[in-house]
Design a protein around this nucleic acid. Structure first.
Lengths: 89, 89
DNA sequence: TCGAATCATTTAAAAGTTTGAATGTATTTG
DNA sequence: CAAATACATTCAAACTTTTAAATGATTCGA
């Protein structure tokens, strides 16, 4: 993984709410933006913004079905970050 | 590693200059703040600020010798972050 | 001891992030 | 079709981070 991408991915993780989303997706496989809204208590536009950061970073994939957007962890992206960190240590 | 700490550590990584410092420490074992200043071209106070973020996060240990501060990667902290990420994926 | 070197802190400006209200689009339900 | 639901986008305010100038402390060398 390129440093520029590491910067982006770690930046995506480095937020209370986004980390909570990632942790929930680790337990739960998928959730919708509405689920996130309920879980966090954030406004819908704010959730939309956080979800965008997660998808832009590659950590989360989305799949639109009807009105809903389903989020899913991208385990490969996580693995790639892990590999980069191992390369450092 | 606690989520709160993950947030802090990933936040410490998520910067161009701080990531460059970490990558250099992966190659070079130790460097001083002056070395960082030279490497990055940043002002001395700015370097001091970034180094503080890295040490506060636990990713970097410092050792003062005379006028110099020697930086060193904390591999255990890196490993702990890695373990957390593995737990997600 | 004097001057230079290394680093920390304070302060303030510039840049970036986070947030929600308002609004818009698309989809489902009655 | 009208109303409701799910989500995106635009905008502006609040907040945080990044940056360097100014200053101060400590250490080393001549």
């Amino acid at each position: 993984m390129e440093p520029k991408n590491v910067e982006k991915v770690t930046g995506a993780i480095a937020d209370k709410y986004r980390l909570a989303i990632l942790m929930q997706l680790a337990k739960q496989e998928t959730m919708t933006s509405s689920d996130v809204q309920e879980m966090t208590g954030l406004s819908q536009p704010c959730v939309s913004h956080h979800v965008k950061q997660l998808t832009d970073s590659g950590l989360v994939d989305t799949q639109k079905e009807g009105r809903n957007v389903f989020l899913r962890l991208n385990k490969q992206a996580l693995q790639q970050l892990c590999d980069f960190l191992k390369g450092l240590g």
